[in-house]
Amino acid sequence: MLEGLVALLPQVIFDGLLLGFVYAMIALGYTMVYGVLELINFAHSEIFMIGAVVGVEVFRYLGPAIPNGIVVLLLALLLGAIISGLMAMVVERLAYRPLRARGTTNRLVPLITAIGVSFVLQDVVRFIEGLWHNEFKLQMRVIPPLDGNFTFLTVFVQYKALILILVSLLMLFGLNYLVNRTKLGTAIRAVAQDMSTARLMGINPDVIISRTFLIGGALGGVAGVLFAVQYSTIDPYVGFFPGLKAFTAAVLGGIGNITGAMVGGLVLGQLETLSGTYLPTLTGGNFGTEYKDVIAFLILILLLLFRPQGLLGQVVKEKV
């Protein structure tokens, strides 16, 4: 039995890598917003879901028209990034900014708003899809050459998986460059560090916050499209678990820390596929794959107990 498990290992690690990249991209959206606003943006999982839905729709309408799957995917990624990014901006403008403008000190208010927005977005998408196609579950129809595959040593690799890895690496390096090397990135870091001093330095925090939501949302949208391409079946409530886990990943890496979010995502992706694959075999089928969600949660709890600042985070003093 042990040999079988070992033989499976490269495949499991590869699958975990794919999941990890998806988590990493979503986690970046959480961590950036948390960095500037200290808000858990629950609606981010729905921004991700919107990206996935856009992906499905693009393939539904352009798939038959354009024969090349790569072109369709690029269009889907672009459209997903734009729509999700704009959606995140709209959410910030309509729901979060009025709260900031009022100067609420109660920390619950933005959190409750965020969870409310998340619910609204879920059902708005559900309503639109219901009206449009009378569908709840959406099926992704990928077209060649995305559905092609080859076997590398013992690992079964789909072309779409390679594209997922490539695109997410590009996005992650791009974001790192943007945050650390550009003027906008400096401004974002300044606002995250101290909003009022940043304002004194001639930075308009509202603009920067809006841009942060745009960037985080676009990343979430890209992650959504790739998720839909990779895992095929989605629905308007599909964002919840990836969102929860991506947040766990962000905490795992140290929330507010961009590199940390990536590392956290990759680690969590591995842990989840490993436990999802081996738990049933190791426990003789007593505990099935369903428990992989429980594993992610246990990790979060343990982390909060023993290393709340995360793997790469530093202990921060509370702003008073």
């Binding site: 729901a95 409310g116 927005v117 619910f119 609204v120 879920q122 059902d123 309503f127 219901g130 009378n134």
Partner: peptide, 20 residues
């Protein structure tokens, strides 16, 4: 109306709107 559009299934929308 498509069968998917049924108000009884849209509690989330109602509660979300109330919260926001």
């Amino acid at each position: 109306l498509p069968s998917q559009v049924e108000p009884a299934k849209y509690e989330r929308l109602v509660f979300g709107v109330i919260l926001v």
